[in-house]
């Protein structure tokens, strides 16, 4: 437990560094974002509006940097990330609304891909050298296609041509309204199918190959030979091997979840799906700095959180990582 707490401390320091960098970067950038914003409005601004914008960025009072930093930090602790310029809403509110789409779609797809890929990997590893190995090039081919290409291909064929799936969006905006009603939930499920399939197809090979190779390595370990020698049924022997072989994949899964937000960008663009990725693209396009800063913070925290999750999982799954009493 002490080990985990020490790791947690390390992550807190990392988070603080990231937050500070997030605070400093826009202020150190050549070309003041505020000036740019004012220039974009091309003289249609009154001095009051300029003052309002500056206030919004916390720069209007010509405070020294350290005081601004104090304001920024205290605001952060209260969940205030500033106002989005383009959406005229608090950034925290914007992110709070969109994050669930991303978690729901990318998270589900990542977990599904992990489960399917790892299970296949166990089987393929157990039967290495059999005809099953012929599936591997196919899976790696799907992974090697650029994601937007694969996604577009799937949309063209299965959605536009065959009409098996909706083409874009997160739910049927024509007939459904958001809320906890069956029509809406079913619509969301239906619209998420093709995006999820596309993500699983493009990421399956990684899990599968990783697990297969770990299985092949683990099977040659003595304790697997012992499991056979002990007369255990095949299923149990496989479990001895798989339980050991899965450790690196579990760590990878946690790290993948860390890239959930940043990885959502392509999927959400291809399927015109709501979510943080889409938000990021729009924020960059509109030079919406407060929103950008908010998204960067979110990415930082998910990556750090996922790393901590990976550590915690490893701690739970592998007794060797626990610092415990010595032999004797």
């Amino acid at each position: 437990m002490k080990l985990l707490l020490r790791r947690l401390g390390l992550y807190l320091i990392t988070a603080w560094v990231a937050i500070t960098a997030n605070f400093l970067l826009p202020r150190l950038m050549p070309g003041n974002p505020i000036e740019q914003l004012i220039a974009k409005l091309q003289g249609r601004v009154t001095p009051q509006m300029i003052r309002a914008i500056k206030l919004q960025f916390g720069q209007g009072l010509n405070q020294p940097l350290i005081v601004q930093y104090g304001h920024y930090m205290s605001g952060l602790f209260h969940g205030q990330l500033g106002e989005s310029i383009t959406l005229a809403q608090p950034v925290s509110q914007v992110l709070g609304g969109e994050i669930w789409w991303t978690i729901g779609l990318i998270g589900t797809a990542a977990v599904l891909s992990f489960l399917i890929g790892t299970t296949l990997g166990v089987i393929f590893g157990w039967r290495r050298g059999s005809r099953l190995d012929a599936v591997i090039p196919g899976a790696t081919f799907l992974q090697s296609l650029p994601y937007y290409f694969l996604g577009t291909l799937l949309i063209m064929f299965f959605a536009a041509k065959m009409h098996w799936f909706p083409i874009e969006g997160a739910y049927d905006t024509g007939t459904q309204t958001q809320g906890w009603n069956w029509g809406y939930i079913l619509s969301v499920l239906r619209y998420s199918q093709l995006p999820i399939i596309s993500i699983v197809l493009s990421s399956l090979a990684g899990w599968m190959l990783g697990m297969r190779n770990m299985m092949v390595t683990t099977i040659s370990e003595d304790f697997v030979l012992m499991a056979v020698a002990k007369g255990l049924p095949r299923r149990k022997v496989m479990w001895h091997a798989a339980r050991n072989a899965v450790l690196p994949s579990v760590a990878n899964l946690a790290l993948t979840i860390g890239f959930l937000v940043s990885g959502s960008l392509l999927v959400e663009q291809v399927f015109n799906y709501p979510g943080v990725g889409n938000l990021l693209v729009n924020a960059v396009g509109n030079e919406d700095y407060p929103l950008l800063q908010g998204i960067f913070l979110l990415v930082t925290f998910t990556v750090l959180g996922a790393n901590f999750l990976a550590d915690a999982l490893y701690y739970l799954l592998d007794p060797r990582t626990r610092v415990s009493g010595q032999a004797q």
Partner: peptide, 20 residues
């Protein structure tokens, strides 16, 4: 037959025991 009639002990006990 295995283990109930014929059992085996390997050279390295560390690798012969499941580490988890």
């Amino acid at each position: 037959i295995r283990w109930s009639h014929i059992s085996i002990v390997l050279q390295s006990a560390l690798s012969a025991l499941n580490p988890l």
